[in-house]
């Protein structure tokens, strides 16, 4: 039995501590916003926040996530999160949408750490989040737009 704090709620779960956090969220807690894309931290579709930092939930064992605060896009809140989601919507960033929860969670972490990211800062922070639909130009633009909104 392990205890995970997800989106402000403690869950006591009868799962192996080796089960990747992604599958705990999706299969046990029915929180499906974090997506499976590669299983090896190569694509970022599974990105959630652990103690406020972007983390690839497919490659974090559930046992390593006890005593942390896990946040998924369903519950992510605050000025930065709202600015990012608003920018994504006003620029119509999404196409298929499958990677976008992860993109948004990564972008929020970036803007929490750097309020005025350059294109190079954005590329460095976001390069591990793959979008097969190729929405990158709008993602970059949306991050700049969100940065302006929170300035």
């Amino acid at each position: 039995m392990i205890r995970l704090n997800v989106n402000g709620t403690a869950h006591d779960l009868d799962v192996s501590p080796e089960m990747p956090l992604l599958w705990v969220l999706r299969d046990r807690l029915q929180l499906t916003s974090a997506k499976y894309g590669c299983g090896r931290a190569l694509c970022g579709a599974c990105t959630v926040h652990i103690d406020g930092e972007a983390a690839r939930s497919c490659s974090v064992m559930a046992g390593d996530a006890v005593h942390t605060e896990i946040t998924t896009i369903e519950a992510v809140a605050g000025k930065v999160a709202e600015a990012v989601k608003t920018a994504w919507q006003s620029l119509d960033v999404v196409q298929c949408g499958y990677c976008q929860s992860g993109q948004i969670m990564s972008a929020i972490t970036l803007l929490n750490a750097n309020k005025t990211p350059s294109d190079a800062d954005i590329d460095a922070a976001m390069d591990g989040n793959i979008c097969r639909c190729g929405t990158y130009l709008r993602i970059r633009q949306a991050i700049h737009m969100a940065a302006k909104a929170i300035a």
Partner: peptide, 21 residues
Amino acid sequence: LPRLDSVSKTTGRAVFSFDVR
């Protein structure tokens, strides 16, 4: 015109078949 699927796809609410439980 804004896309009709933008909000659901930026809030984690859009349902793909992978999300069916």
